[in-house]
Simulated assay, not measured.
Amino acid sequence: MMGPRQVDQAALFYEFSLERHVPAAHSLRAIDRFVDLSEVRSHLAPFYGSTGRPSIDPELLVRMLLVGYCYGIRSERRLCE
């Protein structure tokens, strides 16, 4: 269709801030202070391929596993929720 777009696309996007949703005294913030995973990505870089779909960020994966362990979440689907 030619011409200017008639529908506002702002409704398609939303802003989410983890800082506003996780309370300051939450246990996950305490874990984050003590766990340093900054070198995980560089250490595991040789094991990731350069072709195909991008892989899951290893730092994110380890963080998700820690949350699952701390909260007793065994299902990966539930952990992603």
Rank of each mutant, 00 (worst) to 15 (best):
A45I: 05
L44E: 07
Y69T: 11
T51R: 13
S50V: 09
L65F: 11
L61S: 05
V62T: 11
Y48T: 06
M64P: 01
L66E: 02
C70R: 14
P54C: 07
M64S: 13
S55T: 11
R63H: 04
T51C: 08
L61R: 01
G49H: 10
I56S: 07
I56P: 01
L44C: 02
V67M: 10
G52W: 02
G68K: 01
G52C: 12
E59H: 00
G49A: 13
P58W: 00
E59W: 03
H43R: 14
V62E: 01
I56N: 07
Y69E: 14
V62F: 09
L60Q: 13
R53Y: 08
C70V: 09
H43P: 00
L44H: 04
Y48G: 02
G68Y: 02
L60T: 14
L65G: 07
L44Q: 03
P58M: 05
T51E: 12
E59D: 03
G52S: 06
G68C: 06
R53I: 04
F47M: 06
L44S: 02
S55K: 07
G52Y: 04
R53S: 13
L60R: 06
S42W: 00
Y71F: 15
M64V: 12
I56M: 14
E59G: 11
E59Q: 15
T51M: 11
L65V: 13
H43S: 11
G52I: 08
Y48A: 08
L66W: 03
G68E: 05
F47Q: 11
L66P: 00
L44R: 01
S42Q: 10
P54E: 08
V62S: 00
M64L: 15
T51F: 10
V67F: 05
L65T: 10
L65P: 03
L44G: 00
G49R: 09
I56L: 15
R63M: 06
Y69C: 13
G68F: 00
L61F: 09
S50P: 05
S42H: 03
G52M: 06
S50F: 04
Y71H: 11
H43G: 02
F47P: 00
Y69P: 00
Y69S: 11
L66G: 02
Y71P: 00
G68A: 11
R63E: 05
S42D: 10
V62K: 02
G68I: 06
P58K: 03
L44V: 12
V67I: 15
M64C: 14
V62Q: 02
Y71A: 12
I56D: 00
L61D: 02
P54I: 03
L65N: 09
C70K: 12
V62A: 12
Y71E: 14
S55E: 13
P58H: 03
C70I: 05
R53G: 05
Y48P: 01
G49N: 11
T51H: 09
S55V: 07
L60E: 12
A45M: 10
L61W: 01
S50Y: 03
S42Y: 02
G72P: 06
G72W: 07
P58I: 04
Y71L: 15
Y69L: 15
M64R: 07
E59L: 01
A45P: 01
C70W: 09
P58A: 13
P58N: 08
E59I: 04
I56K: 06
P46Y: 05
L60W: 06
Y69W: 14
P58C: 04
P46N: 07
L60S: 14
R63W: 08
S42N: 06
G52R: 05
P46K: 09
